[in-house]
């Protein structure tokens, strides 16, 4: 579904990702872990071109999206993204947040989008918040709505950029639970996270990134029980 070849990204002289290859198949749940500054968030942001890669290619559904002249807006419709800081539109109500993109991109009529928004809100038990502004929600509620907002575009793949890192500990559970449900429904997911429990339980493949390269990738069981790379062993001993 997504082929990444030789991906390189530098900010000025600072090389953040160097020559990374990855193949993400439909239905896979790839969990990327690693110390901060390892380039894992930047890698994720390159996948939907929020960051412009310096080198290498990314192919999505058979189309090379890093080629010049590609309409990134069309690509992004099929890739949902969830951010660490939720980024709900502060000037719009919860329902308007969910409806904005489908309606403006003329994918749905206003009525269809509204019905879909209410259906999705019901799914996460937040339908009574439909007409509230984001400022009135808790962090966990905001993130669940941010996820649902992405789902309203019917994406083929969902990218999660540390979705629980900005949450109070007691709200992490509700967000992870929703992500698990998504995973069970067969959604293709790429997740950057520090939640090792989630990586072990939900991931089909866990990737360890450090200093801009993939140091190790494996099934969750092998990854956590028999880590090979010394840097990974050190990392796991600190976080587990």
């Amino acid at each position: 579904m997504i082929y990444v070849k030789g991906l390189t990204k530098s900010f000025g002289d600072n090389l953040v990702i160097s020559n990374v290859d990855m193949h993400i198949r439909p239905g896979e749940k790839v969990v990327i872990v690693g110390p901060s500054g390892s380039g894992k968030s930047t890698f994720l942001r390159c996948l939907n071109l929020l960051e412009q890669p310096t080198g290498g290619t990314i192919t999505f559904d058979g189309q090379e999206i890093t080629a010049p002249g590609v309409d990134v807006n069309l690509i992004r419709r099929h890739m949902g993204m969830v951010f660490q800081h939720f980024n709900l539109f502060a000037n719009l109500t919860v329902k308007q947040n969910i409806m904005l993109a489908p309606v403006q991109l003329k994918i749905k009529t206003k009525e269809e989008a509204e019905a879909e928004a209410m259906r999705l809100l019901k799914l996460v038990n937040l339908e009574e918040k439909a007409d509230d502004y984001p400022a009135r929600l808790s962090g966990g509620q905001k993130q669940r709505i941010a996820i649902v907002r992405s789902l309203a575009m019917n994406p083929e793949v969902m990218l999660f950029d540390e979705p629980t890192s900005a949450l109070d500990p007691e709200m992490v559970g509700e967000v992870l639970e929703l992500m698990k449900r998504l995973a069970d429904d067969g959604m293709t997911m790429v997740v950057v996270t520090h939640e090792m429990g989630f990586a072990r339980e939900v991931g089909t493949r866990v990737v360890f990134m450090d200093e801009g390269v993939i140091k190790e990738e494996n099934t969750p069981k092998e990854f956590f029980d028999h880590p090979q790379d010394p840097r990974l062993q050190d990392f796991l001993s600190k976080v587990l």
Binding site: L50, N73, F83, R149
Partner: peptide, 13 residues
């Protein structure tokens, strides 16, 4: 906050 722009762009707007 630049996250607002990123969120809009990530939805395809």
């Amino acid at each position: 906050d630049k996250g607002q722009m990123e969120a809009g762009r990530s939805l395809g707007l």
